[in-house]
Design a protein around this nucleic acid. Sequence first.
DNA 1: CAGAATCCTTTCTGATACTG
DNA 2: CAGTATCAGAAAGGATTCTG
Lengths: 133, 133
Amino acid sequence: MSDTHTGVTVPVPVPADADCPIREVLDIVGDKWSVLIVVLLGQSTYRFTELNRAIEGISQRMLTRTLRILVRDGLVTRTPHATVPPRVDYALTDLGRTLLEPLTALNTWAGAHRDDIAAARRRHDTAEEAAAQ
Amino acid sequence: MSDTHTGVTVPVPVPADADCPIREVLDIVGDKWSVLIVVLLGQSTYRFTELNRAIEGISQRMLTRTLRILVRDGLVTRTPHATVPPRVDYALTDLGRTLLEPLTALNTWAGAHRDDIAAARRRHDTAEEAAAQ
DNA sequence: CAGAATCCTTTCTGATACTG
DNA sequence: CAGTATCAGAAAGGATTCTG
């Protein structure tokens, strides 16, 4: 493969799903709720209903589903207690905690640049509006 | 709001979309292609067709669409050249480049823990299979 | 070449009702 | 309480065709 603007030959930079680490993270982190849950569990253990209340807008169905995936991926533990009424605690695993750091970096970035992004959008939208006239 | 297992009152940790930085990043980064494009453009400028070829599996439609959003968010520049045949170069803005660092952190994490995740999945799936018997 | 437009399929998500 | 099951709507994504 030849790179038109540099003349340099480059390898395929983003291979198909299986063997691309970037796509793997996205599979874990790229959905609507996983990150939110991981960040919350980074603060303390939560039980099902607590998570449901803490994450505004999540449905019971999606919470169940997402937790399952996180447990399967080894990021979260699920520990049921044989009490009445039943109680299930969710917490991060050691692996899950290692994810906290890069996520925090992303979160920090968002906080630092949200204004820039908002400004860029305004610029873009008004410029586009002007072009439409 | 009272935290059942600690007895401590906590604020709502994950507010609705508008004012939550985490959700904002996810809006940018949480889709199937944006990160891939940003990472590629972190290496050099690309033109449309180059991106299309470099990102295995992306459709023309999705590439166009995603690039538009990235441009609107001020992360990517689009510079058309009035040549025949036409040519459009895409590159990161300064803002876009700042995103590279947290993304790299995430990528590094993925590389470092992909085996752990794969192992967790195997454990989980075989345990589940055993339970099904 | 770099898209735009259209159509169609798949996936995701929320609402609702039910259960151990 | 902590889910499961079912259904319907929304959204995302892909394939194809067409154009400046």
